[in-house]
Design a protein around this nucleic acid. Structure first.
Lengths: 210, 210
DNA sequence: CGGTTGCATGAACAGACGTTAATATAACCG
DNA sequence: CGGTTATATTAACGTCTGTTCATGCAACCG
């Protein structure tokens, strides 16, 4: 038993190192640019050792892809019943924006986001997961909340789907801009306050005045 | 003279073919994925012939980059004095959205847009041109028009810069989605109507009711 | 006509790539 | 202790990469 634990610990340790190094390098140089040799060097091992842990380079990438859309923020909507969220009105939208902001500046999520951008055009799987994720898990669920807010009389009547996109898109664009600036280590102070400003503006745009 | 014209015609012809092929291949496979041999093959020539027209691969890419942000749509704001645009109110925003829509579906601009997305994370020059272009040439100028609209009493008072971003971001996100769907030759009919819907929604959000 | 120039070819280079095979070195199990 | 198993190394493979060079051909100029 002990031996088994230790063995699998050793495996996990190197395997994890490989995944970490791959995440780092792929998020910087893209899938093609992150060569097996570079990854091996970052781990501190020869390239052939990689193949004791992964069948090939693609398997490493697939492993990373799995963590792409199964991260902490995917279950944002599952924390509380959706009806409860709807009643909170603007406060809910603020929380949502705060979550996006958090992901934007969180190192792990930033890397994953970069990989998405890097491989979006090249990798069909990434593309489909991207569209699915952002559509189903964000816009669709957002539109549900907005629909309920309309029924509560909190916001004006409109197409919930359209409204969800209008709320989501500026957050996405903001995230993109911040990520780009951070690549060149430029300041993002101006942009970082815009997550909240966006919610304010949006709420002014849709709120039904009492 | 005649000889000179013919010579430069021949040069231009092959050089143009190279640029066309490079644009096509780079927009599909990215800079790294579009090898000199692939480009040469697409032109119908051996790879060494490429070097009669370009110093190296990077020079080809630079040539394409030049056309990136100097395309027809850059001078959208220069067609008419900005004050005139402001007075048109919603109609101006419709025209702007129509221009983005046009660029989204135009093959040449679609390829350039793909290249931007592909190289955004890898190429500092693309990154800076992207931020400059979208910031200066779109958001900044949009905010100017919106500011004038506020003064005209057409739209409500707010931060023009913020408002410009709110108007621009959904168009950008829309363009991204459409481009992604078209890569896999999926239908974009639902999305293509959203350019106008966005303007409608935005106008409802900011217009001062008479 | 003879020479220069423009543009193509074929062959080769050095390096990077993903991957594999033979081998070594431990640590574990019975 | 002896054998198995996990993990590392070294070396090599075939292929692709960007680029160069010597060469050939054809069109132009004086």
């Amino acid at each position: 038993m002990l031996s088994n634990v230790q063995t699998s610990k050793t495996i996990k340790s190197t395997k994890e190192k490989i995944l970490e190094a791959a995440l780092e390098l792929i998020s910087r140089y893209g899938y093609k640019g992150a060569s097996v040799r570079k990854i091996a060097k970052a781990v501190g091992v020869r390239e052939s050792a990689i193949y004791n842990h992964f069948k090939n380079k693609d398997e490493i990438f697939q492993e990373i892809l799995k963590s792409l859309f199964s991260s902490d923020f995917s279950d944002f909507f599952e924390k509380k019943p959706i009806e409860e969220n709807a009643k909170k009105g603007k406060k809910f939208l603020m929380e949502y924006a705060a979550t996006v902001k958090l992901a934007t500046f969180d190192p792990k999520h930033e890397k994953l986001f970069k990989i998405v951008l890097l491989e979006l055009m090249q990798n069909k799987e990434v593309r489909e997961q991207f569209l699915n994720y952002f559509y189903d898990n964000n816009i669709k669920k957002l539109s549900h909340v907005l629909f309920l807010m309309m029924q509560e009389g909190l916001i004006r009547q409109s197409d919930p789907m359209l409204m969800a996109r209008e709320f989501f898109a500026p957050l996405f664009y903001l995230r993109l801009e911040v990520t780009l600036l951070r690549v060149d280590e430029k300041s993002t102070v101006t942009l970082s306050t815009m997550f909240e400003k966006h919610v304010e503006f949006f709420w002014e745009s849709v709120a039904v005045r009492a």
